[in-house]
Nucleic acid binder design. Structure first.
Lengths: 107, 107
DNA sequence: TGAGTATATAATTATTTGATTATTTAATAA
DNA sequence: TTATTAAATAATCAAATAATTATATACTCA
């Protein structure tokens, strides 16, 4: 696949509001699926499928910790993604509002 | 529309191989529709519809010159798009190979 | 072991999208 | 005026996509 095609595929991944939000969230902090579900207010399978696309596209990596799966960004080789993220407002408030965070449910 | 939604929409526009190539071409030089059709080897209505999406998304602007319509990039307010374009290989060879260029058909 | 929880997968559906074909509009030039 | 050329629009269709619902897998703990 040509470089331009690969970049178009990455842009397509970021071309969905939910996925772009997920990437912006992960830019702040590693998160588990249930936390992302909680923040984005959608179904677990919906998030799970977005995560698979992001993983297949090489934008995130997963780490299993017990029964939880944590996702983190993997964009060292894609500096332009970091540029895009610079333009996105901080998602810290959404992360702070996690009930999980308070209850330490995923730790 | 939220900023993150607007950025997702821009990414979606760039998330198509043909449109990303068009934007990369316009990054080198203003081009008319017939030239883009020539380079991308697809139909005129196909390009015309891609140009409309890019125009609606605010990524390009058009200038009519006689019976030709020239498009050029309009991304001053979107620095991250410039960052993406930096990662794309030069499209100069494709522009140089234009028959138009030799014959000066669009001038 | 079995219950409970977290996540993934599969199947389905409605919507969106990219491309094609046919037609229309607009500009130029004979 | 008519013919020609460039581009846009409209209609159509197949493929891709995001979301939902239902089910399966995997891990933990009593």
């Amino acid at each position: 696949m040509s470089q331009i095609e690969e970049m178009a595929d990455v842009c397509k991944l970021l071309g969905d509001k939910n996925r772009l939000t997920i990437v912006a969230l992960l830019n702040e902090k590693e998160l588990c699926v249930c936390e992302i579900v909680d923040i984005l207010q959608t179904s677990q399978p919906n998030i799970s499928q977005h995560m698979r696309k992001l993983k297949d596209g090489g934008l995130v990596k997963e780490t299993k910790k017990g029964q939880w799966v944590y996702y983190s960004l993997r964009i060292q080789d894609k500096p332009y993604v970091a540029e895009i993220l610079k333009q996105i407002p901080s998602q810290q408030d959404k992360i702070n509002s996690l009930v999980c965070e308070e209850n330490e449910c995923c730790t």
